[in-house]
Computed example of a mutant assay.
Amino acid sequence: MSAADVISAKGDGGPRSTQSQDVPALRETDRREARPDQPTREAEAPAPQKPAGLRGLIRQHPIAAIVGAVLIAAAIVGGILWWLHARNFESSDDAFIDTRTVLISPQVSGAITGVNVTDNQIVKAGDLLATIDQRDYKAAVDQAAAQILQAQASIADIEAQIGAQQAQIQQANQQVQEAQAALNFATDENQRYQELVQKGAGTVQRAQQAQSDFTSKKAALDAANAAKLAADRQVDVLRAKGEQAKAQLQAAQAQKEQADANLQRTQLLAPTDGRIAKLTGAVGALASPGQAIMVLVPLDVWVTANFKETQLELMRVGQPVDIHIDAYGKSYPGHINSIQAGSGTAFSLLPAENATGNYVKVVQRVPVKITFDQRPDVELGPGMSVVPRVTVRP
């Protein structure tokens, strides 16, 4: 310590005041060190207790509690309203556009000479799709037509022969009548001369001549009758040939119809309105019966929705349906057309066998056919996904 510091301390009473201030602090420190286990007065004073539990939380945050209560009430009311609204509808995401596609395949074989359509083209019923080589089938038509003419000529010839034979029959009838008249005269002559010979009025020679003439006339009558019978039998033969010729005519006509049908089948026509898909036919390729060269997708489509069997309780035919098409994000009105009589697995290629020991019950799906009220203004094809919503409660 310097002399200035000593003089300043003495003048100001520094050492006294410092000693008087430090003693109580030292005593308090010594007291704490002497009794470390005894709490201080501040520690001995009880701390204020905070309210515990939900009530305490609400008291601490009253505004948040009110907001939470309002939100919970709104959620409950909204859930009830949603349930009251949703229970009036049944929907399924296992639904697709469906139709009966037509496989365009020729019924006759031959080389393809023309393909009049292209991929995804819209066609109308009766439009020409493709053409097969027609030369062989035209020849078959001409041959059948020639056979018809030949059969008709045979029938006409036989009818003419029957007419001529009828004339011969009439001539034979006249000959029979002439022979019968001659026989009658010869009979009378023979009888008269035989009586005269017996009475002695006539000669034996004349009686023998009359007898010979009678025998000759009788033989002539028998010959005329035989000729008449032969003429009649010839008519029957000609009529049988006529029936045979008519049968040949019918066979030729049937062959002509078949040839015409085969010729028409060389032109493949669209059976209904639709769009071309999976076109494989090409000019020059050989087409065989039953081999599809293209697929026609009809424009008339519907929805096949696979609903759970637990959704069918209130579902009925005719109920309105809102059909949402995933591809376009649009909805179109429709109605239930029919409900399949059985689950989808019952008609599958390998139906489920439930008569086993490891049977597990699974909710089945039942196909429901839904038709559009009007044809949609978008292009739809089989397999496209939709979501139908059926109004089961009006």
Rank of each mutant, 00 (worst) to 15 (best):
D142Y: 06
Q143E: 08
Y137N: 00
S154N: 04
I155Y: 01
I148F: 07
Q174W: 15
I169Q: 15
I162W: 06
L149E: 15
A167S: 07
S154D: 10
Q150Y: 00
I169P: 09
Q147P: 02
E159G: 06
L149F: 08
D142P: 01
A172C: 09
V141H: 05
Q175T: 14
Q150D: 09
I162G: 05
A139T: 10
N173C: 15
I155K: 04
V141P: 04
A139N: 02
Q175A: 15
A167P: 03
Q166A: 15
D142R: 10
V141A: 13
I148G: 00
Q175R: 14
Q166L: 12
A153K: 06
Q175K: 14
A144V: 07
I162C: 07
A153C: 06
A140M: 03
G163I: 03
A153M: 02
N173G: 15
A145W: 10
Q161W: 05
I148D: 06
Y137L: 05
I162D: 11
Q174T: 14
A144K: 06
I155Q: 08
A145Q: 09
A153H: 03
G163V: 02
I155H: 02
D142K: 06
Q152M: 04
I162A: 10
Y137C: 01
A140K: 12
A164F: 07
A172S: 13
Y137P: 08
V141K: 12
Q161V: 08
A164K: 13
A160E: 02
E159R: 07
A144L: 06
D157F: 01
A167Y: 01
Q175L: 14
N173P: 03
K138Q: 13
Q175C: 10
Q147C: 00
A146L: 03
Q147V: 00
Q170F: 14
I148S: 08
L149G: 08
I155D: 03
I158G: 02
G163S: 12
A172E: 07
A164W: 03
Q165V: 04
A146T: 12
A164S: 11
A160F: 02
Q174D: 15
Q168F: 12
D142A: 12
A156P: 11
A139W: 01
Q152G: 03
N173D: 04
Q165P: 03
Q165E: 07
I158D: 10
Q170S: 15
D157E: 01
S154A: 13
A153L: 08
Q170P: 14
L149C: 00
A164N: 10
A167N: 14
Q166C: 04
A146C: 08
G163R: 08
A139M: 01
I158A: 11
A160G: 03
A167K: 06
A156N: 12
I158V: 03
Y137V: 03
A153R: 04
Q168W: 05
Y137R: 07
Q152T: 03
A140P: 01
E159H: 12
I162M: 11
N173A: 15
A144C: 11
Q143K: 10
Q165C: 05
A160P: 01
Q152I: 00
A156M: 02
A172W: 11
Q174L: 15
Q175F: 10
I148K: 05
A160Q: 04
Q165S: 13
A164R: 13
Q174P: 14
Q170A: 13
A167I: 08
E159F: 04
V141R: 09
I148M: 00
Q165N: 07
Q147Y: 01
Q168L: 05
S154L: 09
A145I: 09
Q150E: 13
A145V: 11
A145E: 13
V141E: 13
A146W: 05
Q171F: 11
S154K: 05
